[in-house]
Amino acid sequence: MIDIEVLSKLFNNYYYFAAIILFIIGFHTMLTHANLIKKIIGMNIMETAAFLIFVSIGYIEGGRAPILDEGFDQIYMNPLPQALILTGIVVAVSVTAYALSLIIKLYQHYGTVDADEIARIRSYKP
C-alpha cells in the first residue's frame, strides 16, 4: 500500500516532518497575525524550523560527537551543519532583537503593537 509507504517514510524522517510543520506554523503566524510581537514569534518559529532541518541533515541515529579516539569505526554525526547553525542562531537573535526594538519605537509612536490598529491610526492622519 502506498499510504503505508508514505507513512513509514514520514515516520522515519519525523524530524523533517516536524520541521516542515514548524515552518508552516511560523510562516502562517508571521503573515496572518496583526500583532507585531506575534509576527516576530512566528518569524522565530520559522527560523527554528529551518535550523532544525539543517541540523537534522547531519544527524545520524546512534551517532556521537566527532571526537576521534582509539577506534576509527565509530559512527559520528556531521558537525558542519551544527557549526553553521550556530552562526544562523546568532543572526536570528540579532534580527529578533532589532525587530523588537523597532516595535518598541512603534509602540512609543502609536501606543499599540497591532499592525491593523497602526494602519487605522495612520489613515486618520491627513
Partner: peptide
C-alpha cells in the same frame, strides 16, 4: 520605523526561505 519593520519581517522571511533551500 514602520517601513523598516515591514522590510525586516519580509526580508527575514526571505532569509528563512534561502536557508531552507540551502539546507
Amino acid at each position: 520605523i514602520e517601513a523598516s519593520l515591514k522590510y525586516l519581517i519580509l526580508s527575514t522571511l526571505g532569509s528563512g526561505c534561502i536557508l531552507l533551500a540551502t539546507a
